[in-house]
Amino acid sequence: MFRGSIVALITPMDEKGSICCNSLKKLIEYHIKNHTSAIVSVGTTGESATLNQEEHIQVVMKTLEIADNRIPIIAGTGANSTSEGISLTKRFENSGISGCLTVTPYYNKPTQEGLYQHFKCIAENTDIPQILYNVPTRTGCDLLPKTISRLAKIKNIIGIKEATGDLSRINKILELVSEKFLLLSGDDATALDFIQLGGVGVISVTANIAAKYMAKICSLALKGNFLEARKINKFLIKLHNKLFIEPNPIPIKWAAKKIGLIKSDKLRLPMTKLSYKNKLLLKKEILKIKNI
């Protein structure tokens, strides 16, 4: 369940900023139909930063309800306070979620020892499998390979979403962890190379609108058929990059609305809608994927 194309699901809202359950259902059915391996609910792409905790829990639980055991659900449970991370994680005990994705604490820039103690403390307060999430460009801190190796020894810390885009990290991590520890890319543009170097999949933004293609790329790559995987990825590479033409999830929400998966591309402040200029650039790439 923690291999292949895992979508970092957007959280659909109506024009008033309330959660749109009808669009959420449409998104989940789309991913089940197109063979996405699992769904991350309310990760950073799901706007965890602007949902309050009750809304956060509501969206995860609604996602579980709609999915109805047809696709594994991973809950985003990251926080920059360890106690908050524990509290949020414990709310999902016995809920049916398959795991938690926990981002490094943002803004307060802990030391490597602080990062170790943070994740260790959360893991020791739950039996839910934990996936670490390292994205320094968004959080201001970097979870280094030596710290990852220490955390990998904790039984329910099962893997990491590594979103630095630095492919040299893969071998550095693999040398320090057991073969059971899972490496998942958090960068669509380098995900195929990541898998070829020893990763087992990607937690993907692109999959929100190109689920079938991301699932196929990962399936082929995990079978060792990188030639065919690269043929498909070639058509997506510009899309991967254009989906970050403005901060995530601004572009992906507009794209999802454009292809009819959600009714509105509403985001909560301080995030604002995609600029007109960038809509034109992104529209070109969306049209291309229809022709694969």
Score class of each variant (00 low, 15 high):
84 E>W: 01
85 G>W: 03
86 I>Q: 06
86 I>G: 10
88 L>A: 07
91 R>H: 12
91 R>K: 15
92 F>I: 01
92 F>C: 04
93 E>L: 08
94 N>T: 00
96 G>L: 02
96 G>S: 01
97 I>W: 01
98 S>A: 12
98 S>V: 06
98 S>I: 06
99 G>A: 15
99 G>R: 10
99 G>Q: 10
99 G>M: 06
99 G>E: 09
100 C>W: 00
100 C>Y: 00
103 V>A: 01
104 T>F: 08
105 P>T: 11
107 Y>V: 13
107 Y>L: 14
107 Y>M: 12
108 N>W: 01
109 K>M: 11
110 P>R: 04
112 Q>M: 05
112 Q>F: 04
113 E>V: 11
114 G>F: 02
116 Y>T: 08
116 Y>Q: 04
116 Y>E: 00
116 Y>W: 05
117 Q>K: 15
118 H>P: 13
118 H>F: 15
119 F>T: 02
119 F>P: 06
120 K>R: 13
121 C>L: 14
121 C>Y: 01
122 I>H: 03
123 A>R: 03
123 A>D: 01
124 E>A: 11
125 N>H: 14
126 T>W: 09
127 D>C: 12
128 I>R: 05
130 Q>E: 10
130 Q>R: 05
132 L>N: 05
133 Y>M: 06
134 N>Q: 08
135 V>Y: 12
136 P>I: 03
136 P>Q: 05
140 G>R: 03
142 D>E: 07
142 D>C: 08
145 P>K: 09
147 T>C: 10
148 I>E: 04
148 I>N: 05
149 S>R: 06
149 S>Y: 11
150 R>N: 12
151 L>I: 05
151 L>G: 00
152 A>I: 09
153 K>H: 09
153 K>E: 14
153 K>Q: 14
153 K>I: 05
155 K>W: 04
155 K>Q: 13
156 N>C: 11
158 I>A: 02
159 G>C: 08
160 I>V: 13
161 K>N: 06
161 K>P: 08
162 E>W: 12
164 T>D: 08
164 T>S: 14
164 T>R: 04
166 D>F: 13
166 D>G: 09
167 L>H: 04
168 S>Y: 12
168 S>M: 13
168 S>Q: 13
168 S>F: 12
169 R>I: 02
170 I>C: 02
171 N>T: 10
171 N>W: 06
172 K>T: 11
172 K>D: 13
173 I>G: 06
173 I>S: 07
174 L>K: 15
174 L>R: 15
175 E>F: 12
176 L>P: 00
178 S>G: 15
180 K>E: 13
180 K>Q: 12
183 L>C: 11
183 L>D: 05
185 S>K: 11
185 S>T: 10
185 S>W: 08
186 G>F: 06
186 G>M: 07
187 D>S: 13
187 D>W: 07
188 D>E: 00
190 T>P: 04
193 D>L: 10
193 D>M: 11
194 F>S: 00
194 F>E: 05
195 I>N: 10
196 Q>K: 15
196 Q>W: 01
197 L>F: 14
198 G>E: 03
200 V>K: 15
200 V>W: 10
200 V>L: 14
202 V>T: 09
202 V>I: 13
204 S>E: 03
205 V>P: 02
205 V>I: 13
